[in-house]
Amino acid sequence: MTTPLQVTTARLRIPVTETDHARGPADAPVTIVEYGDFQCRFCGAAYPNLHEVLRQRADTVRLVYRHFPIANVHPYAESAAEAAESAGARGRFWEMHDWLYEHQDQLDPVHLSLGVEQLGLPPEDVDAEVGRHAHADRVRRDFVGGIRSGVNGTPTLFVNEVRHEGGYDLAELLAVVDATATA
């Protein structure tokens, strides 16, 4: 059972289902699954590039977002993820997702509540759901599925279930999408 220095290509173990948050055509030939943490600055840096990939390859790419909060270093990551789920329960996951990544320095409870209000969601209801961890199980399920797939930090992307080992700048993301689409 010893596997010294053998680097195997990690693959996504938890398939995408209709319970996932997905953006882009359901029959897209390329699906990117992102494991992300709303308070992670590397995820924040990848966010506009993923957005641009979806725009430039609108018929080709679907993006699925799963939570991977590292709460011990990112104290607001779990409440942000749960707020996104609370918005998701109201059909507004992606709007909240975008707001969170566009306001990474404002994830404390007061600013988060203002953001929820800005999006036209009911701040008291969302606050209450986050406060009683109504969506914590969902967030945890994403996290556990991630570690079983070998996710070791954020962001981690899987492109058609194969772990993306490269960087997150636009050129590199477009290259992997195009290579996968024509594979």
């Binding site: 943490d37 991977f68 270093v73 570690i147 954020t154």
Partner: peptide, 16 residues
Amino acid sequence: PVCGEQMTLYQAAMPE
């Protein structure tokens, strides 16, 4: 230096 480096990740995974 990496985000979510090893020991930090392991703390997050402790419940598992």
